[in-house]
Amino acid sequence: MSASRATLVSTLGLALLFVCVALSLAAGVIHVPLGEVLRALRGGLEGSSDGSLSRTLVLEMRLPRGLAAASVGAALGTAGCLLQALLRDPLASPTMIGTAQASGFGRVLGVYLGFSFASSVALAFLAATLGTLLVLYVSRARRGFASQIVLLTGINVGMLFMALIGLVQYSSRDEGQLSRMVLLLLGGLWQVSWEPLRFVLPVTLVAVVLAQFGARSLDLFSLGEANADRLGLATRRAGPAILALACLLTSLAVSIAGVIAFVGLIVPHAARRLVGPAHAVLLPASAALGGALLVLIDCIARTAVAPNELPLGVLTSLVGVPLFLMLLRSMARRGAAR
């Protein structure tokens, strides 16, 4: 895969994300014309404050939200891509194998224990890692992983963590805390502010870029561990590193948006159709498509039943399930017994 094609895809992807976020700044109950959006952004950069409604709307509400959606989508798209290659399974994703639910548990436990945002992300990451390791321990074959077992174990471990989340919520005696937990896990971005983003955005960006360095290793992992090994990949080091990255990206996404299903599953497939399966182009394409998709769906969530909002997680499932079923149907027709 030529480096220039990877650069081209990354650039186009960034442009797509930029356009989607820009559109999301204009869209909403109160329409802000693009010219005014740009004025507000420029004003924000220069630090001037005219206190206008559109400025507050754009800079304090829609911009953090658009960036959050982009970051969550990019994180989930990338995490899905990493997991699918590592497990050699087109049906793997952070939600399918329980990583997202485990992150959700860590995050909610953080709220329960009164942790700071960054500490709850760390707790989410820890829970995600433990949950995923449990799944992989159970489904580990002599070499590689047994696909059906990974997915079945993942569903079970996911349920285990949903039960643990229920337990934490049940133990909470503080109504404000409880409602924060419930809203957090419903899957949505309505409470996003700049505060958590100052942490999540740069870390997500670094993780997405780091994943890019693993592109060749992921190409090799797609051939199976024995084949990756014969071609010179130190699978014992690369595997855990890729897994850790997938867990980190998932916990970052879950920490601000809750458990959002199907993005991590569907986006890598869509990206594969667009740019092919080579990870040097697939990774940036998945990040960009995931980000763009979530920004657009979040716009719908904000505007469809205005002045109320639809939960983002509900919308992604409504969009994701039919696509997932189509994917399953095409796999069944090809006779891919998994």
Partner: peptide, 21 residues
Amino acid sequence: PQRCEVAFPVSVEHFVGLGRF
């Protein structure tokens, strides 16, 4: 190897290129 099942089928050129890892 006897077998090499490719999870996400790449092109022949790309596949051969993985020999350069």
